[in-house]
């Protein structure tokens, strides 16, 4: 595939709880290419947001190991001032909750202008205002001149999310990280926002990391998908393969727990996602949630196996996985879908 824009290598992001550091992102390696949407799927506690925050350098109290190469340059060890030069300019982020992500005491115009002031100080006042109005237009906000002087609380959730997107794309970033960008929004607004992200991506040729727990959103948006569980990537594939030929037990379980056509009973994953300090640190981390699968099918130290070009699965247990509600014989090595 195309040029590598972002290369995450063996990233470990740990947080301190009590006297110990616990890794929320545990040895993750991923790449994002130019003009590509990488979907990252996982439930709460999977480490997907911690991963995004690590790339943006937004963790204030985490320990970060490994490397994150942005256009070939390691940004983990970058001094703050250089990092600030990148953030909001070459890479930017769309946040989950539009109701809290804007400063309640600042006008919309000023909040978008700020990112221009920081990265294009040579712009004149008028140029800047024109550019902001143009951005508001681009993200589909009606009456931009009026909204320019409004405060966040005067706008609906969908409009605020558009403002946040306007901030993120103000300097035409090469990398756009969208962290659950539509979770807080209604479906019709979601469709509009996703459409907008898609258009902007193809216009600017940016790489996009789309983080979400909503499999439907990933299926619609992503070119490639990484599934995360307990801080690790358990499966990566292009979107068609991942949805039509999923391999990892977690991916398959997740897909089966979403209501779909003709499905009578939803699949329930046993147990719960353990809290950060209780995450299993050895062996297959999903093993305790599929106890009916014999323990000798798991690897001692599971690694990602490339089972077809670009399709990686962690641990060997996928070969022996079946759903307990299905007859074992029929399903052992076969596909469940497609």
């Amino acid at each position: 595939m195309g040029d590598k824009l972002l290369e995450i290598k063996n990233l470990i992001t740990s947080f301190r709880i009590g006297d110990h550091y616990y890794a929320a992102v545990d040895n993750v390696s991923l790449t994002v290419n130019k003009n590509e949407v990488l979907g990252i799927v996982g439930e709460s506690g999977s480490g997907k947001s911690a991963l995004a925050f690590s790339v943006m350098g937004l963790h204030t109290k985490a320990k970060i190991e490994g490397s994150i190469l942005f256009n070939g340059k390691d940004i983990v060890s970058l001094p703050k001032s250089e990092l600030n030069g990148l953030r909001g300019d070459d890479m930017s982020m769309i946040f989950q909750d539009p109701l809290t992500a804007l400063n309640p005491l600042m006008e919309i115009g000023a909040q978008i202008s700020e990112t221009l002031i920081l990265h294009r100080p040579q712009m004149s006042l008028k140029e800047r205002k024109d550019h902001v109005i143009e951005l508001l237009n681009m993200v589909g906000i009606p009456r931009p001149e009026y909204v320019y002087e409004q405060f966040p609380h005067e706008l609906s959730g969908g409009m605020r999310q558009r403002v946040i997107i306007a901030i993120a794309i103000a300097n035409r970033p090469e990398l756009l990280i969208a962290d659950e960008p539509t979770t807080a929004l209604d479906v019709t607004i979601q469709a509009q926002i996703l459409d907008l992200v898609r258009k902007l991506k193809s216009e600017m040729g940016s790489g996009v990391i789309l983080i979400t727990h909503d499999l439907g959103v990933v299926a619609e948006m992503a070119d490639r998908v990484a599934v995360m569980y307990a801080g690790q990537v358990v499966e990566i594939a292009d979107v068609q393969t991942l949805f039509n030929n999923p391999k990892h037990p977690y991916t398959r379980s997740l897909l089966n727990s979403v209501p779909a056509e003709g499905q009578d009973k939803l699949h329930v994953i046993q147990g719960i996602v353990p809290a950060l300090q209780n995450l299993p640190r050895e062996g297959c981390r999903f093993a305790e949630r599929i106890p009916w699968i014999e323990s000798n099918t798991h690897e001692k130290d599971p690694v990602l196996h490339e089972i077809s070009p670009g399709h990686f699965v962690r641990c060997t247990c996928y070969k022996h996985f079946y759903f307990p509600e299905e007859p074992k014989e029929a399903k052992v090595y076969g596909n469940t879908r497609g």
Binding site: L58, N84, L86, A101, L102, N103, M106, L118, H119
Partner: peptide, 22 residues
């Protein structure tokens, strides 16, 4: 710890600007 502070940092604002403006 409010979200808009993270937004400000993500814009590339320096720590002093984050404090003074936000």
């Amino acid at each position: 710890q409010r979200d808009f502070v993270i937004t400000a940092r993500a814009k590339g604002a320096s720590e002093s600007r984050v404090y003074n403006r936000h």
